[in-house]
Amino acid sequence: MTMLNKLPLLVLGCAATMNASAAQVHAAVAANFTEAMKSVVEKFEAETGHEVVLSFGSSGKILAQIQNGAPFEVFLSADQAKPKALEEAGMVHSGSRFTYAVGALALWSTLPDFIEDDYSRLSSGDFNKLALANPKLAPYGLAATEVLDALDLTDATKAKWVQGENIAQTYQFVATGNANLGFVALSQIMSDGHVTEGSSWIVPSDLYSPIRQDAVLLERGADNEAAIALLDYLQSSSVAHDIIHSYGYETE
C-alpha cells in the first residue's frame, strides 16, 4: 500500500485522538532543554492524554517568531530576558512566568581523560579549538565568557574560539571532534544523572551568573487546557522535576 492510500486513515486517526477529551499544545523550547523536554513530554502525554507538538531552536529565533505571529502557545526560554520582553509586549498570559530550570555549564571533550575535572587543560593551551555558543545570542555562551573572565583566560584562549549560533551547534562542533574542547550545557552530555561520553569539568556555579530559564503561557494558549496542564506539570510534578534534575538542571 502506498503512503497516499494511507493518508485518509492517518487523518482519521488524528481526528480521533483529538476528540478523546485531549487537547493539543504547541510548545517552543530552547535548544539546550531538548532532551529533557522530550522525556518530560513523554510522561506528560502518557499521564494526561494531551498531545504536545515541540519546536526546538535558539531562544532568540523563537522570540522573533513569536513576535511575528508564530503559532506557539507555550515558550520555554533559555533565559529570563526573552519571556520578560514578551510579557512587556503583552503577549504573555499574566502571572504565568516561572523558572522551570536553572542550567549548568560544563567544559567537555569527546576524548577520554582529556579534561581532568578542572580547568588545567584550558589554562595549558594544549587543545586545538574551544567551542562556545555565541555570547551575544545564547545565555550559555554568555556564561562561558563569564567563566573565562573569572579564570582570567579570555585573552589567552580567544584566538582558539569557535562560536556556535546556539548551544546545540556548539555541542555539534565538539561531538564531531572538530573542537577538542567546548563549553556546553551540562544537560547535553548528561543522561540518567551522569556524563555519558568523553571527559568533562562541571563548572562551579560561582564562576558565572545563574542561567535561570523561564517558561511562559503565551496569550494565544491562554484558553488551551493542554497548554495550562503542561506548564503546571513542569512547575509542580515531582516526576517532571526528577527528569529535569537527571539532566543536570536545578529547579526552584
Partner: peptide
C-alpha cells in the same frame, strides 16, 4: 558556512553570517 565556519572574525565570519547575527541579536 554556518555549519562548518564557527563564526571567527576575519576567517569565517562572512557577510551572510554577520547579517544573521545582527538579526538574531535584534
Amino acid at each position: 558556512v554556518l555549519m562548518i565556519g564557527g563564526n571567527i572574525p576575519q576567517e569565517t565570519r562572512v557577510v551572510s553570517v554577520q547579517i544573521y547575527d545582527y538579526v538574531e541579536a535584534m
